[in-house]
Simulated scan of single mutants.
Amino acid sequence: MFTSHDGLCSIGELAESAGVTVKAVRFYSDNGLLPEASRSVGGHRRYGPDAVGRLRLLRSLRTLGLPVREVRRVLGEEEDAAGSVLEGAVAGQLRELGSQLTALRWREAGLRLVLECPPEERADRLRLVGAVATPPNTGALARFWRAWLPPRMPARATAAFLEVAVPQPPDDPEPAQVLAFARLYALVTRPCTGAERPQPEAHHGSGARASAALYAGLAQAYELAGTQLRRGAGPRPGEELDSFVDAYASAYGSRDTPAFRRLLAGQLAADPRIDRYWELTADVITAPGSPPEPTPGSAHDWLFTALDEQTAAATG
């Protein structure tokens, strides 16, 4: 392939043989990815026959989008280990590309949201959408709940609650879902006083352990109620309600009696609500035109209504 007497080639000959530019060969050489065999008397780079194959591999790795540091890792490993290093590098690049694609889809849906709304609403929607990063980050929602949950609640119990309370934004959203998430973000980041978001009476119970038990029990009750919501069933007594009441009774160290149910119904009726949060959450996780997905908020409403109707019937 190389016709010189020493079997070496110039940078131009190498570039032509590998189908790349001279600038690319120089870039790889300067970054230590393509070693030179020697220099000519005039100081020009000279490369050996194996440089063509290495250069083609470099081009393939860079075409996949791998950064120079990852290319150097792949080339620097022994042959047996290079495969696993390459696999890890490609997997990492795929994750990064997925994040970029999600960001582009959110930007596209946001642009459609602004373009398709009435002109008088555009300024407000631009403000809402512009405050949200792409792809969206749920950190502000998690901070909102950490400030609202009972103090000193165990980390594992808090994490379990956040998993169901913080909606995961869809990878390919519709404009309506972008608007719902932007409004949700605005809701949890706006300044508020303690009077605007008071803690439920349940948060003033018997300490962190009782709070963890309460939320674990509520999670189970919400899951059961969610099944009924998906079926379109109306609120009613049953396993779901029993699980709901038991969660509170266990946290308070009480027994599930008719008197306790009446007391609980009255307390829950007076407790503060975050209805707007749950309405927007449902809009974020539900594709337009589909039945609304249950949330802890909608499950709580279903269970509270069942409890309220049961206690009202018992005293009527």
Rank of each mutant, 00 (worst) to 15 (best):
T134K: 07
T134R: 05
T134M: 14
P135C: 14
P135I: 00
N137G: 13
T138E: 12
T138H: 07
G139V: 03
A140K: 10
A140W: 02
R143Q: 11
F144V: 03
F144I: 01
W145H: 15
A147K: 09
A147T: 09
W148C: 10
W148N: 08
L149F: 13
L149K: 08
L149P: 10
P150A: 13
P150V: 01
P150S: 10
R152W: 07
R152D: 15
R152A: 15
R152N: 14
A155V: 09
A155E: 14
A157F: 03
A157E: 04
T158L: 01
A159R: 13
A159Q: 13
A160Y: 06
F161C: 14
F161M: 13
F161E: 11
E163N: 01
V166C: 02
V166W: 09
P167R: 01
P167Y: 00
Q168N: 04
Q168T: 07
Q168M: 10
D171W: 12
D172Y: 08
P173N: 09
E174L: 10
A176H: 07
A176Q: 12
A176R: 06
Q177F: 06
L179T: 01
F181Q: 05
F181E: 01
L184D: 01
Y185S: 05
A186D: 05
A186I: 05
A186H: 07
L187N: 02
V188E: 07
V188R: 03
T189N: 08
T189M: 07
C192I: 11
C192G: 14
C192A: 15
C192K: 06
T193H: 11
T193C: 11
T193S: 12
T193P: 09
A195W: 13
A195Y: 12
A195F: 05
E196V: 00
P198C: 04
P198A: 14
P198F: 04
Q199M: 13
P200T: 05
P200K: 07
E201P: 04
E201A: 15
A202F: 10
A202I: 07
A202K: 08
A202N: 02
H204D: 04
G205T: 02
